[in-house]
Simulated assay, not measured.
Amino acid sequence: MGLFRYTVRRLLQAIPVLLGILTITFLLTDAIPGDPVDIMLGPSPAQRVAEEIRAKYGLNRPLHVRYFNYVSDVVLHGDLGRSLYYKTPVSQKILERLPVTMLLMLSSFAFALATAIPLGVISAKRRNKPTDHVSRVVALIGVSTPSFWIGLMLIIVFAFHLGWLPATGLILPWAAPASVEGANSRVDVLVRSARHLVMPMVSLGTLQMAAIMRIERSSMLEVLSKEYVKLARAYGVPESTIVRKHAFHNAQLPVITVVGLQLSSAIGGAVLTETVFNINGLGRLIITAVNNQDIQLIMGTTFVFGLVFVIGVIVTDLSYAYIDPRVSYGEAE
C-alpha cells in the first residue's frame, strides 16, 4: 500500500512540473525573434493571406489569451495544436516520429547497461590492475567525447572505409517486409534494422555507458569493503559467490539513480545523433521546427521530451523498492 500511495503522490507531483514545462516553453518560444508567418510565406507575404494565417492559428491574439488557450487545449483535450510547417496536427507528427526516437534511446541504454555493468564489476574486482586501468581510460574517454563526434568517426571508419554498416537512415524492426527494399521475410527486416541501428546506438550510448560504468565500479568497491563481505571471505566463501550474491545486488541502487539522470543527456544526444545519421525521429523533428520557427511544433516536441524525462524519473524512483527492500516510501510517516 505504501508503494501505491507513493506512486500516486509522485504522479501528482509531476503535474506542476509538466505545467512548468508548458509555461516556460511557451514563453521562450514566443520570445524567439522573427515572425513564423513571414518564414512560411516568404519575406514579402500578401497582407490578407498573412492575416488569415495569423487568425487561423491564433497568432493575432494577446499573449495571455494564447497561453491559457494552449494550456487548456493540452490539459483538457490533449491537443498540442497544428503545425505551421507541416499543416497537420502536432500530435500526429509526434506519434509518427516518437517510436523511432524511443527505439534509439532504449537500444542505447540497453547497450550502455550490457557493457557498463560487467566492465564496472570486473574493474572493481581487479582494482589497480591492467584491466581496471583500461576500463577507467575507456570511461574517461566516453564521458569526455561528444556523441555526434563519435557518430562521425563511426561513419568514417565502418561506413566509408570498411563499408560494413549503412551510414544513414533507420529501418524499424516492426516494419512490414514489403516496405523494406530487398527484404523477403521478418528475419531480413530484423537483420537490416540491426545493421542500421548499431552505429547510432553506440554513438548515443557511449556517454551513458561511461557514466554508468564509473558509478558501478565505485559502488562495487564500496560494497566489497563492507564488514559483512570481509566476514564472508573469512568464512572461505568463494570470491565469485561474494560478488554475485552479496555485493552485486546491494551495489545497484546508485546505478539506478544515474540511469535515471542519464535520461536528460540521452534526450539531448538523440537530437544530435538523429541529425548525424539522418534518422527521422523527434530530434530531427524539433530541429525542423526550430529552423522554420514552427512554434506549435516546438512546444509540442519539447513537452513530449519533458514528459518522457518525468516518466523516466518516476520509474527510476519506483525501481528502488525492487532493489532495496529497506525503502519504505513514507510508510512510517
Rank of each mutant, 00 (worst) to 15 (best):
E51D: 15
T131E: 09
L104W: 11
V259H: 14
V313G: 05
I286R: 07
L140P: 12
R326C: 10
L162V: 12
I150V: 15
S147K: 04
L154R: 01
L19C: 01
G20R: 00
P200R: 05
H77S: 14
A124M: 03
A110L: 09
Y67H: 06
G236W: 01
W174I: 13
G120N: 06
T301E: 03
S264A: 15
D317N: 13
L197V: 06
L224D: 00
V121Q: 07
A175M: 08
R48K: 15
F111V: 04
S135P: 05
S144P: 09
K56V: 13
L204C: 10
I15R: 00
W164K: 15
D132L: 08
L197Q: 05
A178M: 09
N292Q: 12
S83E: 07
K56C: 12
R82S: 14
G182A: 01
S123A: 14
R233P: 06
K226A: 12
I279T: 06
T29F: 08
D38I: 11
T302H: 04
L28P: 09
T316E: 15
R217A: 04
G78K: 02
Q92H: 12
V327Q: 02
S319K: 09
L11A: 09
G169P: 04
A110D: 05
A194K: 04
I21V: 13
P99M: 03
V327I: 06
Q293N: 15
A31P: 08
R195K: 15
A175C: 06
L76C: 07
V313D: 04
S185W: 01
R48L: 15
F109W: 09
T168Y: 13
P325S: 01
L63C: 10
A289W: 02
I242F: 01
L190V: 06
G205P: 07
N291K: 11
H64Y: 14
L221V: 02
A176L: 10
V327E: 00
R97K: 13
R48E: 15
A178I: 09
S218L: 03
H77Q: 07
Y235K: 14
V75C: 00
K226I: 03
Y6M: 06
